[in-house]
Write a protein that binds this DNA or RNA. Structure first.
Lengths: 247, 247
DNA sequence: GAGTGGCTTTGACACAGATCAAAAGCGGAG
DNA sequence: CTCCGCTTTTGATCTGTGTCAAAGCCACTC
């Protein structure tokens, strides 16, 4: 498979992630500077965007689709260490070599910035530096949340946690009237879920079947998930179901 | 136990972490501004510095000692999500409520900054903002490294990884002529190690005994560890022993 | 419509690490 | 010196998840 879709967006003002990405705080002048150093790239599902250890001459924002960050040990054990959704940032300013392998989990469009000029803009444009700090702090929180999942939760709780996270994100993105039920497509294969959760794909499959049998979720095909009662799912995840407000 | 030692440092120029903490890049003028909003606080080993959910009116740098960040589930399962060493930063600018419980693992001295004025300084002082971004990116890398340990390593590899990290830090701090052997004190109890590694304390104890039996490490008392061959330890940790340069 | 390849499910069994229990080591208080 | 409380070690057993193997399902191609 090769790159297929050419993205239709050309201008930042049409951009679907304009108000959430690194550029969120930029004013018109700043945006104009960014326009000069940016270019779009698309990848189809399964393609590797970059290998750990590769030289990396750009940083990027995810415009649409899902990408994953993974680490692999010599014997092949792999752990996903990040799930990149639209508006998330890829790459590390100040570092020339990629630390993680980045893979397009679904078809993917990125907005790339040449690294050197972008680094200069970080120094000269507080709006970008500040937004990047904020996003990095959010990612650090997410990583720490994930450490609890990896270190202390059972297989069933791990699956429920992952489903809850995706469900929550979709609930926010689709801003419907708030209900107790959500329907969404899993953007990950069983194997990718296993790599995210520190499990084997067989265990993932078994636990999904078990949650289905117990009526916590329902499936339509292999990928579409129906959650009738989010609170129930959160309970299965071992999280405070009331969001911690009342306790 | 109550606070005991009063810190001797009063001035930033004597400060042992002056060149590594958030203030590393500050010039004399900027330092003077920081001096106005800072104060030292000490904690003795075992004391809780702040509880998850507490209102938090300061951020801080660890000056000396070790602190840990932990998350706890309702049923008591605990996961350490960060190990804070001298120069590390505590707290999140822009957030009024602590996300994690912070505990002094050893006797601890912190340099605290009142949160509001510190946040203003982030906006007005690029040197601080930039250094904080850099430190946050480093912590994110460390958290992701740790996700691999939690998700994919065996108990023995987890212990070896933790020892390797502490050994590496000590080797750097003590800047001796580079040898293949290191001696250091564990700043953590078996239980704290278990909470860091997602294991039980019994498993931690057994694996340490096993590494000792196999000659990978030696112990002097319960806390002092002697590593004769760091490469051997790195191998046990499942990491690239050559640091990835040759492969 | 049969064949192919990728993903997913299910089953049988093995084992690493958890759990439960007890004893040993060690430092501080009286 | 002895007692007490805390941490650590060690032992016996249990169990959740991994491993190995086979079959099912689905989309696509020829």
């Amino acid at each position: 498979m090769l790159d297929t879709k050419v993205p239709e967006i050309k201008d930042c003002s049409d951009c679907p992630i304009r108000h959430r990405a690194v550029c969120a705080r930029c004013d018109a002048d700043e945006l104009a500077l960014l326009e000069d150093i940016k270019y779009y790239r698309s990848f189809s599902a399964g393609q590797t965007v970059m290998w750990a250890g590769d030289r990396m001459d750009f940083v990027a924002s995810v415009v649409s689709g899902v990408a994953s960050l993974t680490q692999t040990m010599e014997d092949g054990r792999t752990q996903m260490v990040g799930l990149l959704l639209p508006s998330d940032f890829v790459g590390r300013p100040g570092r020339a070599v990629a630390s993680y392998t980045v893979t397009a989990t679904s078809d993917l469009v990125t907005c790339c910035f040449r690294r050197k000029p972008f680094e200069q803009m970080i120094s000269s444009t507080p709006h970008i530096a500040h937004r990047l700090l904020e996003m990095t702090l959010d990612e650090l929180d997410a990583a720490r949340e994930w450490m609890l999942v990896l270190g202390r939760k059972t297989a069933r709780e791990k699956i429920a946690s992952l489903l809850a996270i995706i469900a929550r994100r979709d609930a926010i993105a689709q801003q419907g009237p708030k209900t107790n039920s959500v329907v969404f497509d899993l953007p990950l294969t069983r194997e990718a879920m296993a790599d995210y959760l520190g499990l084997t794909l067989e265990t993932v499959s078994r636990q999904i079947s078990s949650l289905k049998k117990d009526g916590v979720i329902a499936l339509e095909g292999k990928r579409r998930v129906i959650v009738h009662d989010i609170d129930r799912l959160m309970e299965e995840a071992g999280d405070d179901s009331d969001g911690g407000f009342l306790s």
